[in-house]
Each structure stands twice: as C-alpha cells, then as structure tokens.
Amino acid sequence: TTYKLIANGKTLKGETTTEAVDAETAERVFKEYAKKNGVDGEWTYDDATKTFTVTE
C-alpha cells in the first residue's frame, strides 16, 4: 500500500511517499524521515486517503 506524507515544517515543506504493509509501518518510516530532516511537529493521519501530515 502506498502512504503519503505531507510535511509542513519550518525547514522542510513538501510531499513524499512510501510503500508499507500497514499504516503503523508507514508512520515509523515517516517519523524517521522527519527526524532526519529536523521536522518535529503535530502529526495527523487520514485513513481514507492514506495520508500523514506533520505540521510545525
């Protein structure tokens, strides 16, 4: 399944996707990606669109 991340960070803005077996796995991947890019904010997830959003 393809999951999408929308990053609304102070230093990183944009979108990326990952293939994962479930939302929990995708969330781990995206949180690691955000951490590597210095983004720390509020996370939301929309199951209907398989989209995570992080906003600083």
Rank of each mutant, 00 (worst) to 15 (best):
T11H: 14
R28N: 07
E24L: 12
E19T: 14
E24Q: 13
D46Y: 04
G14P: 08
T17M: 10
D47K: 09
E56S: 08
K4W: 13
T51W: 01
L5T: 01
D46A: 04
G41N: 01
T1M: 11
T53A: 05
V29K: 09
D22R: 03
G38N: 09
V39W: 15
A23R: 14
T49I: 06
A7P: 03
K35V: 09
F52V: 01
T17N: 05
T18N: 03
T17H: 10
T11R: 10
T53I: 09
T51F: 02
T44A: 10
K10M: 11
Y45G: 00
G14V: 15
N37Q: 11
A26G: 01
N37S: 07
L5I: 03
N8T: 11
A48E: 13
V39S: 03
G41T: 02
T44G: 06
T51C: 06
K50L: 07
T53Q: 06
T1V: 11
D22I: 03
T49W: 03
A20H: 03
K13P: 09
T44S: 13
A23H: 11
V29P: 00
D40K: 13
E32I: 07
T55E: 07
I6P: 01
W43V: 02
D40E: 14
K31H: 08
G14I: 15
N37L: 15
V54T: 02
E27Y: 15
N37F: 14
D47T: 08
T17A: 07
K4L: 08
E15K: 07
T25R: 05
T53W: 11
T11S: 13
V21Q: 12
I6E: 04
T53L: 06
T16F: 15
K50G: 04
Y33P: 00
A26H: 00
E42F: 14
T1N: 13
A26V: 02
V29T: 11
K13Y: 12
F30C: 00
A48F: 11
K35P: 01
T11D: 09
T49S: 10
L5D: 02
W43A: 00
V21H: 12
E24H: 10
T44Q: 09
T55M: 08
V21Y: 13
T1F: 13
K50Q: 09
V29L: 11
T16C: 15
D40H: 14
Y45C: 00
T49C: 04
W43D: 00
D22L: 04
A26M: 02
K36C: 11
L12P: 04
D22H: 04
A48S: 12
G14M: 15
K13N: 10
Y3C: 02
F52S: 00
N37M: 15
